[in-house]
Design a protein around this nucleic acid. Structure first.
Length: 274
DNA sequence: CGTTATGTTCGATG
DNA sequence: GCATCGAACATAAC
């Protein structure tokens, strides 16, 4: 489930239910999810500690510990953070138990995410080549335009590249391109300044809208505005703007959708606008 | 049984 | 050497 808006929701859940409370026990139900630490060490490090602030960068969550350093979580394709009072949710991999309910559960069906401890966020992000957060106010149009680069790769691949901008996944990449009116297969080298600016704005609008509306987890599609591709994304969807059946394509094992009529290739169409 | 799923990494390829 | 592509990872549901 996790793209930027989903992880932002997890951050808020952690903030609301996990801050300022002393950790009683940390239960690792499947150690394969752990990142550079074993279950014993993680539990020992966190027991008795207290979480002070929850930060999100792209799809990563970092929770500051009173003892120093951060709890780090990444959610892969199927991860989530939820709170619970009685039974632990299914597929809980790590349970953070406090002195009283509610407790927090890091859930992940497939084990593609990670949970671990890091000393410093900056160091971690640099080591993993993670670029600026897509909603960082310090990220401006110019640096975004520059970060896209001039290679031959398709614009969708560039949007998915976390070193360009962090937080966009398969679904929101399609949405941003739809809102910008740009075909996903256009090489970045074909994008002039105007198109880069247009993409930047679409990225901001789409992600801010999703975050503001709480479009995440189980509500993720229906909380998005009418006119969003994501609401009809899938097998036999039709463009919410013109009704054309959506085009479907595959790249690197991922399926993407776009409207062959509303989304153009700047190299072909001389003019645009919609 | 084959296909598909909102991610990332790493080896192969051009 | 660099940019890009695709398989692999792991699990359940349709």
């Amino acid at each position: 489930m996790p793209e930027l808006p989903d992880v932002e929701l997890f951050r808020r859940i952690f903030e609301e239910h996990g801050l300022g409370r002393q950790v009683a026990t940390v239960e690792v139900l499947d150690p394969r999810i752990l990142e550079d630490i074993d279950a014993e060490a993680l539990s020992a490090a966190l027991a008795g500690d207290l979480f002070q602030a929850a930060h999100r960068h792209g799809k990563h969550l970092f929770v500051a510990r009173r003892r120093g350093g951060y709890l780090h979580m990444h959610f892969g394709l199927t991860g989530a953070l939820t709170w619970y009072e009685g039974e632990m949710p299914p597929w809980t991999r790590v349970a953070f138990g406090f002195c009283a309910p509610p407790h927090l559960a890091y859930v992940n069906l497939r084990l593609l995410g990670r949970v671990g401890l890091v000393e410093d966020m900056r160091t971690y992000l640099a080591a993993h080549d993670i670029g600026p957060d897509a909603l960082d106010p310090r990220l401006d149009e110019d640096s975004f335009a520059t970060a896209l680069g001039h290679g031959r790769r398709p614009i969708k691949a560039a949007l998915l590249d976390q070193s360009v901008v962090a937080g966009i996944g398969n679904v929101y990449a399609d949405e941003i391109l739809f809102q910008a009116g740009l075909r996903p297969d256009v090489p970045v080298s074909a994008l002039d300044r105007g198109w880069r600016r247009r993409l930047f704005r679409a990225m901001r609008t789409v992600l801010e809208t999703a975050v503001r509306r709480g479009a995440a987890s189980e509500h993720f599609t229906e909380r998005l505005p009418e006119g969003y591709l994501t609401r009809v994304r899938g097998g036999d969807g039709h463009c919410p703007r013109c009704g054309t059946p959506l085009a479907r394509f595959r790249t690197g094992g991922r399926t993407g959708y776009f409207c062959g009529r509303c989304q153009i290739d700047p190299r072909r169409a001389g003019r645009d606008d919609a």
